[in-house]
């Protein structure tokens, strides 16, 4: 799966899109996506892949768009059960995770 996502990232780049790669780098408890799970987001907000069971994807998209807008290269984002940014429902799985987002340049 990660192979398909990386290939898609590459084809977005070849069409001159700005692409941010998000990778799960740490998990605690019952996070559904293991370390290494990937998601890509482009400047239009299109995304592919997944870093959770749908709990934090919306928040990741916003963070990735901010990263592009602010011309930052990378950022580490931590999500916990209580974290309000983890969409309104929070992490239903009761897990915690850290996601690393980086621009591909």
């Amino acid at each position: 799966m990660s192979e398909t996502i990386l290939k898609n990232a590459n084809s977005w780049i070849e069409t001159k899109k700005k692409v941010v790669l998000a990778t799960v780098i740490k998990t605690w408890g019952s996070s559904p996506c293991p370390i290494g799970s990937k998601m890509i987001v482009n400047e239009k907000g299109d995304f592919l892949g997944s870093v959770s069971g749908g709990c934090v994807e919306a928040s990741i998209i916003n963070e990735c768009l901010e990263l592009i807008k602010n011309k930052n290269l990378f950022k580490k984002i931590h999500f916990t059960v209580q974290d309000e940014s983890a969409w309104s429902v929070g992490l239903a799985c009761g897990g915690e995770l850290t996601v690393y987002i980086e621009q591909i340049n």
Partner: peptide, 14 residues
């Protein structure tokens, strides 16, 4: 991540 590294990952995967 540099795009060269992304390309290299795809290449080595294949």
């Amino acid at each position: 991540m540099k795009k060269e590294i992304l390309k290299e990952i795809i290449k080595r995967n294949s």
